[in-house]
Amino acid sequence: MTEKTQETHQDAEVHVVKPPIYLAIFLTLLALTALTTGISFIDLGVFNAVIALAIACFKASLVVLFFMHLHYSSRLLKLTVAAGIFTFLLLISLTMTDYISRAWGMF
């Protein structure tokens, strides 16, 4: 970046992500899309859902870390995102404890 941003405090140092990284992530995402679609036609029982969601989580992590620059961001931002995702998972699991522990569901 410019000399202006160079002299800022190191916590907010700006890292310019280069196009080869974007291109590599882009091609990986396309390959994983093809992979997840292909796997969906193979019968794996409950593992169809597990694998599809695992691939989706991996793709989302790539987008967050590299397209959204979280890998290069400050610890404050990393911790904020982690806290948000943790809260989201907490809300989902607490909701599910209620549904799983009652007789009127199909679980």
Partner: peptide, 30 residues
């Protein structure tokens, strides 16, 4: 204080907004 601090604050605000969006779509997913 400087450009870097402004950028950090702007990113922080945007991420907090996106986390509210995670909760919003998360309800539908649940």
């Amino acid at each position: 204080e400087d450009v870097g601090q402004q950028r950090e604050a702007a990113s922080f605000g945007m991420w907090v907004f996106l986390l509210t969006e995670v909760m919003f779509f998360g309800g539908l997913f649940c």
